[in-house]
């Protein structure tokens, strides 16, 4: 154990070790590729695939077409090119999904850690969480959108306004699960001996939280986050469906799904395309989360 070799092992770069482990997770790699493709498609796609300009009368003639070279995914009931709409919709849906998830996870983790670590905050914060859980979310969202839509639209324009409002509304109404999970985890972690050891060293609570507690709640947070993306995309589509999200002519995956719903019997592909896109996003985010969780745990890494 104490032989003469004293050369210190290189601090095997953390990022590199994490990537090495991540690579071994087949599902995570698959998820990363799929999600990367989706993001590339919605970012670059609109530049590569420019739908032909045509008059309304001509478009109506070309409505409800099946897939063809001219319209790879067909056209909708107003003769609009489905591929172009899917690409536009994806940009908004993915942005809403990820931003809303980040807000929810940030708020949820913060509240969960504060409630779990500081006994005095536990009661008030958890009652607040219960209160949010007890609120009927859809009516609440409707009221929020009704009240603030015009005001925000006046400030940053109707589309950006709708985006901000929706992301914020979804974020602040879906953090409760994460907060509860994190609180439970923190309650258990804070009794561990290494936290006690940190206290005996004289570490201040902020550092104990950042150094010992936060890294150890990563796994449940990761799971909550991946589920949160899916939920946010769906909630956005519900809002849009109810006419309180984005303007009706502004495509999102959820919107396309609901538009296609009434034609599902005749043109099932109208529902399948956005459905597949949402499912693929959710699935790949889920797998990436799974892979990341393993890669971030040194006990699993290198095994």
């Amino acid at each position: 154990m104490t032989d003469a070799t004293t050369a210190i092992e290189k601090p095997a770069s953390q990022m590199r070790a994490i990537w090495q482990q991540f690579r071994t997770h087949k599902g995570a790699l698959f998820g990363l590729i799929v999600l990367g493709t989706l993001i590339l498609a919605v970012v670059l796609g609109p530049f590569l695939w420019v739908p032909e300009k045509m008059s309304v009368a001509k478009a109506i003639m070309l409505k409800n077409q099946g897939p063809s070279w001219r319209f790879p995914l067909g056209t909708d009931q107003l003769g609009r090119d489905m591929l172009a709409r899917m690409l536009d919709a994806g940009k908004v849906s993915l942005a809403v999904g990820f931003v809303a998830m980040m807000i929810a996870i940030f708020v949820g983790t913060t509240i969960g850690i504060l409630a779990g670590y500081f006994k005095r905050l536990d009661g008030p914060l958890m009652r607040l969480t219960d209160m949010f859980l007890a609120l009927p979310l859809i009516p609440l969202l409707l009221v929020m959108v009704m009240l603030f839509r015009d005001r925000i639209a006046g400030l940053v324009g109707p589309e950006m306004g709708a985006f901000l409002l929706i992301v914020f509304a979804i974020g602040v109404t879906s953090w409760m699960q994460a907060a509860r999970i994190v609180r439970g985890e923190v309650l258990a972690l804070k009794e561990r001996e290494y936290v006690l050891a940190a206290r005996s060293i004289g570490a201040i609570p902020r550092r104990i939280i950042l150094r010992h507690i936060l890294p150890n709640v990563v796994s449940p947070v990761m799971v909550a986050a991946t589920l949160g993306v899916a939920e946010a995309i769906i909630t956005e589509s519900v809002l849009s469906f109810l006419g309180l999200g984005f303007p009706p002519d502004f495509p999102t995956w959820g919107r396309l799904l609901y538009d296609g719903l009434s034609y599902m019997q005749i043109y099932p592909e109208r529902v399948i395309w956005p459905g597949v896109a949402i499912s693929l996003t959710v699935l790949s985010v889920n797998y990436i989360g799974d892979g990341l969780r393993d890669a971030l745990d040194p006990r699993i890494r290198g095994r």
């Binding site: 154990m1 104490t2 032989d3 070799t5 004293t6 050369a7 210190i8 092992e9 290189k10 601090p11 095997a12």
Partner: peptide, 8 residues
Amino acid sequence: GLNRRFAN
């Protein structure tokens, strides 16, 4: 009595 190599 720990080997220095184990630091990381």
